[in-house]
Design a binder for these strands. Sequence first.
DNA 1: TGTACATCAGTGAACGCGCGTTCACTGATGTAC
DNA 2: TGTACATCAGTGAACGCGCGTTCACTGATGTAC
Lengths: 195, 195
Amino acid sequence: MAGTTRAQQAEQTRHELESAARVVFARSGYLNTKIVDITRQAGRAAGSFYNHYSGKDELLLALAEQIGVDADVIVATQDPAAREHPTMRPHVEVFWQLFTRHRVVIDALRDAALVNADFAQRIQRFTQVQFEPWVDRLANFEKAGVELPASPATTAMLIGGAAENFARLWQGSPEDGLDALVTFVDRGVFGPAAQ
Amino acid sequence: MAGTTRAQQAEQTRHELESAARVVFARSGYLNTKIVDITRQAGRAAGSFYNHYSGKDELLLALAEQIGVDADVIVATQDPAAREHPTMRPHVEVFWQLFTRHRVVIDALRDAALVNADFAQRIQRFTQVQFEPWVDRLANFEKAGVELPASPATTAMLIGGAAENFARLWQGSPEDGLDALVTFVDRGVFGPAAQ
DNA sequence: TGTACATCAGTGAACGCGCGTTCACTGATGTAC
DNA sequence: TGTACATCAGTGAACGCGCGTTCACTGATGTAC
């Protein structure tokens, strides 16, 4: 028993390393970041890093797990009634929120995938899971008589692509960006009458 | 005078290095490619590389220049009459063609930009120039009474984002991909009536 | 046309930089009795 | 409560791997006369 000071200390350091990593990734990008960049930013010795992670990749995985958790929270707090309307807004909104909040880690994962086949696979799976509800929703619209621009799966790709790339380039306020994106997407899916 | 055999030899090697680079970039990605991977693929000694380029970056720039040349060719061979119709097809088509033909080098440039600020700037400029005619066209539509989903500049971003990301993910035939993309984009811009 | 010398594309072993990773050490915390 | 020992988070200098880059060398072409 006694104080858990040792465990707390370790936990604290771990947390500081992860915060430092976010800062440094945002500044220099994942691929340009050296281990000592992270430890220096965290105010720790280089060797300390390996008490907690086997390498930069493992730290990134730890950061990535927090995205999945947050995704569930966002979906849970959405108004269920919003899903009744014929619009892709709720889905696009989840994406938009996740992307703005976790931009740094998402970019880092993308960068890591370029250099590490394991990450590439992981991202592909994650993307697929993320789009499943989109495809389902689009398929329902189609059954209800909507003429999609392409098959549900292809349409989901079109929307997802537009959303990701637009979110990456958009510089204005998040609200305006989301509105423009939703307008564009809903038109592509339903036509302007749906607005 | 006499035979220009020496210059030819150099030219030949240069050409083989560039072909080899394309092959290796396609296989392993730009960032994972080592100089010796390229020279080995080209059947040359490692040192030979530096007779032609100061490094991997310079070789990539040489490859990139060929894209600009090709872009002009594609635009020149397009039917001018096609530009009369109220559709983004001609612009999307140029993009689609360029992307499919030069995928490997475009991806390499993107990868290089992650690690090299100079490339990042260069890509940004290139992207901006590429989208200028899109913005002009969209502004004309707007003047003619079309209600765009957002400002011409923002709409161009939306379309460009959709196009790039979709082109990257699409696995089917180029024709089908282009058709789906154009349908989606034109709906987003004009609504389904324009089809 | 022939000879002697200069130039230059290509070679590949060796060098050395950058950075990830290790490891002997420190001092604080935890445990046994 | 006190003492002796064990454990463990953190340290940072040093090691060594991987790979970019160099450079003395080769042999084929080009040039001068």
